[in-house]
């Protein structure tokens, strides 16, 4: 049960995080900001930076957690065996 829950929660939250980081323009269209950062308007450069480094960072995290969940599923497969399968199906 634990690995399954983790897998579902990971996928939902990670998908939401990716969509958010890739669509910062949507957030600024709702909450406009009139400021400058690194010489650019914030509403221009922040979506670009998030769309590169933000997404890159998330892929690192997603890769790591994804591998860990795979291992946990493997471990649950091994430890649970098939003894309780008959009860729950």
């Amino acid at each position: 049960m634990k690995a399954y829950k983790k897998e579902v929660q990971f996928t939902i939250w990670m998908t939401a995080a990716f969509i958010l980081v890739g669509n910062v323009g949507l957030i600024f269209s709702v909450f406009p900001v009139d400021a400058m950062l690194f010489g650019f308007p914030v509403m221009y450069i922040v979506p670009i930076l998030m769309g590169w480094f933000g997404v890159f960072l998330l892929t690192l995290i997603a890769g790591r957690i994804g591998n860990r969940i795979d291992d946990e599923i493997e471990r649950e497969n091994d430890t649970l065996g098939h003894a309780d399968e008959a009860k729950e199906v």
Binding site: T11, T15, F18, G25, I48, W52, A62
Partner: peptide, 24 residues
């Protein structure tokens, strides 16, 4: 101009989302 840049940015999500949602 800028709206098209905003539109294009999220296209980078394709492979990461494919990988985590159903690719693996």
């Amino acid at each position: 101009q800028v709206p098209f840049i905003m539109l294009w940015i999220q296209l980078i999500l394709a492979i990461p989302l494919i990988t985590i949602i159903y690719g693996t």
